[in-house]
Amino acid sequence: MNVFRLVGDLSHLLAIIILLLKIWKTRSCAGVSGKSQILFSLVFITRYLDLFTNFISVYNSVMKIIYLVTSLGTVYLMYFKFKATYDSNHDTFRIEFLVVPVGGLSFLVNHDFTPLEILWTFSIYLESVAILPQLFMISKTGEAETITSHYLFALGSYRALYIVNWVYRYYTEGFFDLIAIVAGCVQTILYCDFFYLYITKVLKGKQLKLPA
């Protein structure tokens, strides 16, 4: 474990908590893409199948459980409890256009052709594009609530910090996983224009409005 990965994990946890609290406190999931939340749940389910078979550390197991419970809880809030506030008219990204190619790619490019490894690879590839429905929804509505932009900033920062962690681990342990690194770079690049808007607008107290 290194500080970059720890801060990255905490940033990821913060993002998930921010979103959960936003939906719970305002009792509304306006402006939030349920499709992205479904994809994130799928990412955690396919990645953490080894939760009970492969113990790494208490921290690792506890975080996996928290991610699984909170992401599924968010999907539950969005599609059941506060379904009336779910903005399905703007959450129209076709996630099959993500899941199918990612599924195919995980069969073609992986470290080991075993079910667990292919599912892990699937989850890594899927996570890199899972935010697209959310970014697409914001581009359609043309704006995002400030709390949602904080959520996105924390979520985007997590994988950016993981990239720093991979550089650090490469130089200190000689460890690197090309699949995770490439997917992590793609994932972080997708946030770039949002990061620019967040830093130039939201941090100056303005509303996040995408150029129409």
């Binding site: 990965r5 994990d9 990821h12 080894d50 492969n54 790494i56 690792n60 962690n165 690197f176 995770a180």
Partner: peptide, 10 residues
């Protein structure tokens, strides 16, 4: 590269 198979990252 180091063939590290232990998935110790989240």
């Amino acid at each position: 590269n180091v063939e590290v198979k232990v998935k110790d990252e989240l």
